[in-house]
Every structure is written in C-alpha cells, then in structure tokens.
C-alpha cells in the first residue's frame, strides 16, 4: 500500500467507520422497533400464542424446520403452514408422529395435550399473519 497512507489513517477510518455505522444501525433499529407494531400485529399475541412459542422452543422445532426461512432445512417451512394446511391438519400431524415409514425422515412424538396443541396452532396462526413482504414466494414455503 501507498507510503502516504499511514497506519494512523487506517486506524482512524476503522474507528470512525465503526462508530458511524453502528450509530446508523442503532437509528435504523429504533425506527424499525417503532414501526413493528403495524407489521407484527402484536395486539393478537394472546397468552396462548406466548405458550405456543414456548412449546415451539422447548421442542427445538427450529432444529429441523424453518420459521420465516430461518432454522434447519430438513423439514418444511412452518411460517405459513397455518395457511397451507389449516389447524386441524397441523394437530393431527403432530399427534400422528412418527410415521415410522421406512427410510423416510421422522419427526419425534412430543406427547402434547389438547391445550398445548391449540397453543402451537395459535402461535403458528399468529406467525402466518406477520407482514413478511410477501415471503415465501408461494404456499409451499
């Protein structure tokens, strides 16, 4: 690199750039958090939705599935599964696992009771209503 461009200049660009862009990031975050209520419809987060998210987490669903495209890619996207399959199918599916079909991917049996199944469905319903800028491209997720 050029001799007139010194280490001190490089260091200043580093500190200046890091601070500036971190502050910009904070500002954008502030704006995002302000505008989220209109997009995530948090008024619909009921106790059941909260419990459903807890069940989602404590069964490590994200270890196989994606949710809004994030997670593992071993099993279908579930952000829009409520729209794709509907509540009854989801509950029957969870209860029917594992299928035991030889050689096929298997989902564990989680022994959820009726209320827990409803909670999971309510969580997935709320999730499917988040404004995701029209993602995923189609109903298959």
């Amino acid at each position: 690199m050029n001799e007139t461009f010194t280490k001190a200049m490089a260091r200043n660009i580093f500190y200046g750039g890091a601070v500036f862009f971190f502050l910009l990031f904070l500002a954008l975050t502030f704006d995002t958090v302000q505008s989220l209520p209109k997009r995530d419809h948090r008024e619909n987060i009921t106790d059941s939705v909260v419990r459903g998210k807890h069940i989602w987490e404590t069964r490590d669903c994200i270890g196989c599935h994606t949710l809004l495209g994030e997670g593992a890619y071993f099993a279908p996207e579930l952000g829009n599964v409520y729209k794709r399959r509907g509540p009854e199918f989801i509950k029957a599916w969870i209860q029917g696992q594992p299928t035991g079909a030889p050689g096929r991917r298997q989902m564990p049996q989680f022994n959820l009771n009726d209320q827990q199944l409803d909670d999971v469905v309510n969580f997935l319903k709320w999730t499917s209503e988040i404004n995701t800028n029209k993602w995923p491209p189609n109903i298959e997720g």
Partner: peptide
C-alpha cells in the same frame, strides 16, 4: 486496520440482509 474497517463499515448495516422477510 483497513480490512477490519471495511468489515464493520459493510457488515454492521449488512445485518439488514437478515431483515428482508421476518416482519
């Protein structure tokens, strides 16, 4: 210094590539 300057200048706001479709 110049490498990590570019890292943070691009990478911090670059977090935005995870904020396309999550609401």
């Amino acid at each position: 210094y110049i490498i990590i300057a570019m890292t943070l200048i691009t990478g911090i706001i670059g977090t935005g590539h995870h904020y396309f479709w999550i609401g």
